[in-house]
Amino acid sequence: MPPIILSMEVDGDDYFESEYRVKIGTQVKYLTIAPNTFDRETLSCPIQALSSLPWEDEWTVAHISRPEPRGELKTSLSNKALAGVKHHWHHAMIDCLELEKSKQLTAMALEAKYAHFPDNVIAKIARFEWEIPRIERETLAYQLLQDSDLTPRFLGHIHENGRIMGFILEKVEGCAASIENMEACETALKRLHQIGFLHGDTNRHNFLIIENGAKLLDFESFRENASQEAMQQEMDSLRVELMDDSGRGGGFIFQDG
C-alpha cells in the first residue's frame, strides 16, 4: 500500500525543516526534510522522491537531508516514542485512522464521520509534536467545563499508534458570532469568568451562536485561576473582537471550484 500524506507543514523559503505526517497501512510515521534538500514543487509532494525509503520497516521518524548540493540524500531513521497528551480523563478512545474526513476546517480541526456515532463529529488533532501542548490544554479545559453547558460535548480522546494526540466533540449547528450577538457572547464569557477561567482568544469565530445563546470553542490559550484584571481586559476587548471582519480565527475559506 503506497504511503499517504495526512498532514504537512512545508517551508517554502527553505529556512526551516518541512514536516510530514504519513499513513502507511495501519501505521502513521513522520518525516522531516532539511532545508535545501528538494525544490518547492517536490516538497509539496515528496513521496515519489523518497522511493528508496524503507516504509515498511519499524521506525517512527525519518529525517531526510542533502549535505552537499546535488549530492546524495542522507536518511536517518529513529524509532523514538512521540510525545502525547498526558491528561486522559474520558473513557472513549478513538483511533485517528477510523475517522473519515468530511471537511477540513483548520490546519488542526476537521469535520468527520465515525462509525460508532450517528452524526458527524468535530475532530481536533496535534499533527506534529509541537502542537501537543495546545491539545493538552484544550483537553483539560473541556474536562473542567464538561458540566457547564458552555461548550460542545467532549466525546472522547483520539489516539495514534496508542498515544493520545487529539479529541472529538459533538458537532453543534450554529454560526460564528458578530456584533449583533454581543449580549449572548457577553453572557457566555461572563459565566466562564465566574468560574475563574480565562478563554485567551475571544475572536468571533470562537463563539458558536445557537438558538438560545452562545457556546465557546477553541481553548488552546485557556487559563485557570485568572486574575480579575485579566478577565476584565478580556471582557473589555469583546466588542472589538466581534466587530473584526479580518477573518482571523475563521479557519480555511472554501470557494466553489
Score class of each variant (00 low, 15 high):
residue 150 L to V: 07
residue 65 S to E: 13
residue 25 G to S: 10
residue 185 C to V: 04
residue 214 A to R: 06
residue 138 E to I: 11
residue 18 S to Y: 08
residue 3 P to L: 15
residue 211 E to F: 09
residue 88 H to C: 09
residue 50 L to E: 00
residue 44 S to H: 04
residue 77 L to Q: 06
residue 162 G to Y: 03
residue 18 S to Q: 08
residue 85 V to D: 01
residue 182 M to F: 15
residue 85 V to G: 03
residue 76 S to C: 02
residue 220 E to K: 14
residue 157 H to I: 06
residue 99 L to V: 05
residue 24 I to T: 14
residue 235 M to F: 10
residue 54 P to T: 06
residue 192 L to M: 09
residue 161 N to W: 01
residue 51 S to M: 06
residue 189 L to W: 10
residue 122 I to G: 08
residue 15 Y to P: 00
residue 118 P to D: 13
residue 79 N to C: 07
residue 49 A to K: 13
residue 231 M to D: 02
residue 210 I to A: 08
residue 237 S to R: 10
residue 207 F to K: 08
residue 201 D to K: 12
residue 30 Y to P: 01
residue 152 P to N: 13
residue 49 A to E: 08
residue 189 L to A: 07
residue 201 D to G: 10
residue 256 D to Y: 14
residue 165 M to W: 04
residue 216 L to N: 11
residue 93 M to W: 04
residue 124 K to D: 02
residue 80 K to S: 14
residue 146 Q to S: 10
residue 136 E to S: 11
residue 15 Y to F: 10
residue 198 L to H: 04
residue 253 I to E: 13
residue 182 M to D: 07
residue 247 G to D: 06
residue 86 K to Y: 02
residue 249 G to C: 07
residue 166 G to N: 02
residue 235 M to A: 15
residue 200 G to N: 03
residue 222 F to T: 04
residue 56 E to C: 00
residue 243 M to K: 15
residue 38 F to V: 11
residue 70 R to P: 00
residue 30 Y to I: 05
residue 107 A to P: 00
residue 94 I to A: 14
residue 63 H to Q: 14
residue 127 R to P: 07
residue 116 H to P: 09
residue 6 L to I: 09
residue 51 S to T: 11
residue 223 R to V: 09
residue 206 N to C: 06
residue 93 M to S: 12
residue 69 P to Y: 12
residue 112 A to S: 13
residue 219 F to V: 08
residue 78 S to K: 12
residue 47 I to A: 07
residue 160 E to Q: 14
residue 129 E to N: 12
residue 109 A to I: 02
residue 69 P to H: 08
residue 2 P to I: 13
residue 225 N to E: 15
residue 50 L to I: 06
residue 2 P to M: 10
residue 2 P to K: 12
residue 220 E to M: 13
residue 108 M to L: 14
residue 211 E to V: 12
residue 158 I to T: 01
residue 156 G to D: 04
residue 36 N to I: 02
residue 206 N to Q: 09
residue 127 R to L: 12
residue 52 S to R: 13
residue 10 V to L: 07
residue 178 S to M: 10
residue 187 T to I: 12
residue 216 L to A: 11
residue 61 V to G: 01
residue 222 F to M: 05
residue 217 L to K: 08
residue 43 L to C: 14
residue 104 Q to D: 12
residue 195 I to V: 08
residue 6 L to P: 00
residue 248 R to M: 14
residue 213 G to T: 01
residue 143 Q to S: 11
residue 183 E to Y: 02
residue 89 W to S: 11
residue 216 L to C: 11
residue 56 E to L: 04
residue 193 H to W: 11
residue 78 S to C: 07
residue 155 L to N: 10
residue 59 W to D: 05
residue 172 V to Q: 06
residue 34 A to S: 15
residue 204 R to P: 04
residue 80 K to H: 14
residue 166 G to P: 01
residue 85 V to N: 02
residue 171 K to L: 08
residue 60 T to R: 05
residue 109 A to V: 07
residue 95 D to W: 02
residue 161 N to F: 01
residue 207 F to M: 06
residue 171 K to Y: 05
residue 169 L to D: 05
residue 95 D to E: 07
residue 32 T to W: 00
residue 119 D to G: 04
residue 202 T to I: 15
residue 122 I to L: 15
residue 144 L to N: 05
residue 236 D to F: 01
